[in-house]
Amino acid sequence: MGYNKAKQFSVLLLTAVILAGCSEQRSSFLDPAGPIAAAQRAHLIEVVGWTMIAVVPVFILVPVMLWRYRYRNTKARYTPDWGYSGWLELVMWGVPFMIVAVLSTKLWFSTKALDPYKPIASDAAPLNVQVVGLDWKWLFIYPDLGIATVNQLAFPAGAPVSLNLTSDTVMQSFMVDALAGQVYAMPGMRTKLHLLADAAGVFKGENVQFSGVGFTEQKFDAVAMTPEAFSEWVARVKSDGVPLDAQTYELLGASSTGAQVYEAIGTNGMPAGVIYFNQVAPDLFKKVIGRYHGGEPVLPANQPGAAGYVWQPLFNGSSK
């Protein structure tokens, strides 16, 4: 089973490269922590393996041809007018065609199976999270729990997480490498992503679509916890959080990093750079999407992330 050996070896090699960096935060799909990322990695290795059938001959034959048929080698045959061979044509078109046919089939099934919009089959009930991309931070709303966070996505390990995403500024791309990859978040629109972590752990999450000078700071920890730890975490958010009201949302809308927001409204009960909210207006996510469909212009002054943004209430009164 040479193929499987090669496959195992390449997995090992890739993993070794990744782990060389060795931090406790897992940050690549080559070191997958959930079924989606694992399947993505497996697909990558398969594609590379199949493509090698066409690639390796080039690596071997180019040096061979250059050496064997070098000008000074007068012993080699020289056929200056030879320019066609039916059999060779068949191989040249046939082999790549077969490889692409095989890979297309695999692509078809894999794309269907790993569609980010498809809920992950699981016995555990999915956790719903609404994600709002802001300049340069992520807001996570847990609609069923009445809480929200900035820059920390906590969820129970072993249970699927169903994410609905939008942006309240420019286009962004939400990515958690070790679990599921990325999907765009766009203002006035909703996209979806599903992920699942096999075991407890901390995973890098970030925006990978350039969105301005604070773009590289738009990172967060995706934390998979045991169910008990998650319950504790929810309780802590509820006790240590501040309300997500009109004023705080305005503040989040300004172009700033999570750390800067933490300086403004963070408390000792929250990890550095993370904000906990214990009260959230019920329809906040809907309102964020809906603001762009009101039939009224959204002036720069009211547009989070815009050059002329001044904090304006998105919804009237504080949520109580």
Binding site: Q40, H43, V47, S110, S173, G181, Q182
Partner: peptide, 13 residues
């Protein structure tokens, strides 16, 4: 590799 949506979800951007 990049023609595969499955992998692009990871390596895009």
């Amino acid at each position: 590799i990049l023609a595969n949506p499955t992998i692009t979800y990871q390596v895009h951007n």
